[in-house]
Structure formats: structure tokens, C-alpha cells
Amino acid sequence: MPQQRRKDIPVGNVGLLYVGAVLFINGLMLLGKIPGKSAAVFNLFVGVMQIVFPTIILSQANGDPAAIFGASGLYLFGFTYLYVGINQIFNLPGEGLGWFSLFVAVVAVVFGVLQFTAINDPLFGVIWFIWAILWTLFFLLLGLGKDSLNDFTGWFTIIVAHITGTIPALLLLSGNYTTGPREAITLAVVGVFALVASYALSRRTSHKPNETSTVTQNA
């Protein structure tokens, strides 16, 4: 599979930049560094953006399957962040968000496979697989109440924010994004390192019981 360079700058790439930002904020929230209601505001901002942007893309797609496919995945994130924001503001339990995260994780695997087989973008295929892992952690933490995963998930969220959101978005926006087997393998290795680093960091992190409980219930 030859290396490819993408020069297009759709609005979805702008949205990806803010996916990195909101995941960074949510990771800090999970670690107890940012209060839930403070993080909720940014989640609502990005959630609305991730609903408006794909709607704009769909309205201009003219039946283009590639554009429709690209836009459809953005709604998964938009609804996630809106859900997080509403949960935090109204102090709602996190089980519903957790089970929705399982749905997102499964769909992310499908999107990742399609990036390899239909879109010919293996790097973004790996990005989708990393998102699938992250949203699975959200499911375990919130849907199944695995509170022991709180700090691990928080650190992994922070790292994933940048390796799957911030950095790819900046490369796309600057016209320097390239994809191919080499890039995909490199990111996969980085993803494994992120898991190991998150585990190591989580072993060092300590929280007051009330801080961890509040975050895991409402993240």
C-alpha cells in the first residue's frame, strides 16, 4: 500500500482538533484536576460543534459516499461529549453513558476496518482502533463500575487526546498528513506505549475517595 498525502482541509479536520482538546480536559477531569461542572461547559461546546460540523458536511455531500462516511463518525463523538456535559451539570449517574460508550467502541472497530479496506487510510484505521480501546475503558469504568480503572483511563485519555486528535488534526490542517503502513505501524506502537505509560502513571496517582467517586459516577 503506497504512502498517501492528503491536502484537503474539510471542517471535520477542525473538529478533530477539538476532539483532542476535549479528551485532554476529560482526562484531567478523571484525574480530579478539573471539577466536573467546569469540564462540562467545554464538553457541551465541542459536543454541539461535533453535531453541527457533520450536518454541514452531509448537507454538502451531494450523495458522496466518502463524505457521508466521514461525517457519520463525528456524531459518535458529538453525542458522547453532550452526554458527558449533561451528566456533569445535572449530576446524573454514568451508566447510560457507559453503555453508549460500548456502542461507540464497537462501531469504532468497524470504522477502523473500513479505513483499511475501503478508504485506504491505514493510519486513521489505527486511530479508530485506539478510540475503540478508549471508549471500551469508558464502558468498563462507567457502565460496569470498574472504579479501579479510573486513573488508568484518565491518563490514557490524556495521551490519546494528542496522538489521535491534536497531532493528526494539525497535520491535516497544514497539509502534511500522510498515511501508509509505516505510519500505521508507528502509531500502533505508540498506542501500546500509551497503554503501558498510562498503567505506570496510574500506579503513582492517588486521589481522595470523594474526588474519584464523583468523577467515575459522572464522567
Rank of each mutant, 00 (worst) to 15 (best):
S101P: 01
L82E: 07
G36Q: 01
N26W: 03
V192F: 07
V109Q: 12
S198C: 11
I56D: 09
F24I: 08
I68S: 11
T179H: 02
V109H: 01
S213L: 15
A21P: 01
I130Y: 04
T205R: 11
P10T: 05
R6Y: 15
A161C: 10
V11R: 04
L173C: 02
K37D: 05
I127T: 10
G125R: 08
D8N: 15
W135V: 12
P65I: 05
L74D: 11
S206T: 15
T164F: 08
G143T: 13
Q4P: 00
G36T: 07
A108M: 09
T117G: 04
F156M: 09
L31V: 07
G47V: 11
L187I: 08
A66C: 08
V41A: 07
L23Q: 12
T216W: 07
Y177I: 07
F100R: 01
G47Y: 08
R203P: 12
L123T: 09
I130T: 12
G145P: 04
G32A: 05
T186N: 15
V19P: 00
F116H: 07
D147N: 08
H207L: 15
T117P: 04
A67K: 14
L123E: 02
M49E: 10
F45V: 14
I159M: 14
K33M: 10
V46Q: 03
A21D: 05
M29S: 10
A200S: 05
S174E: 00
S72Y: 09
S101M: 00
G85D: 02
G12P: 12
F152V: 14
G96K: 12
P168E: 08
W135N: 00
L140Y: 03
D8Q: 07
L195K: 02
D147V: 09
A161Q: 02
Y18R: 10
L97P: 01
K146S: 09
I25K: 02
E183I: 08
V192T: 10
A169N: 02
N210I: 08
S72I: 08
G12F: 05
T136Q: 02
F152H: 05
I56E: 06
I130M: 06
V107F: 13
A132Y: 00
D151I: 10
A200N: 02
I167D: 00
I68R: 02
L137P: 00
N176F: 13
P181N: 11
I86P: 01
H207I: 09
F79N: 06
N210A: 06
G78T: 12
L141W: 04
R182V: 12
V192C: 05
F139D: 03
D8L: 13
K208E: 15
N210C: 05
E211T: 13
G27F: 01
P209E: 12
K33F: 05
G12L: 15
D64A: 07
A219V: 14
A132V: 04
I167W: 04
Q4I: 14
A219Y: 06
D147P: 06
L149G: 06
A197S: 06
L76A: 11
F152G: 07
S38I: 04
V106W: 03
S198V: 11
L23A: 04
N218F: 08
A132T: 01
L173K: 00
M1P: 01
I163V: 15
I185L: 15
T178K: 06
T166M: 06
T205C: 04
W99F: 13
R204K: 15
Q60V: 03
G175Q: 04
V189I: 14
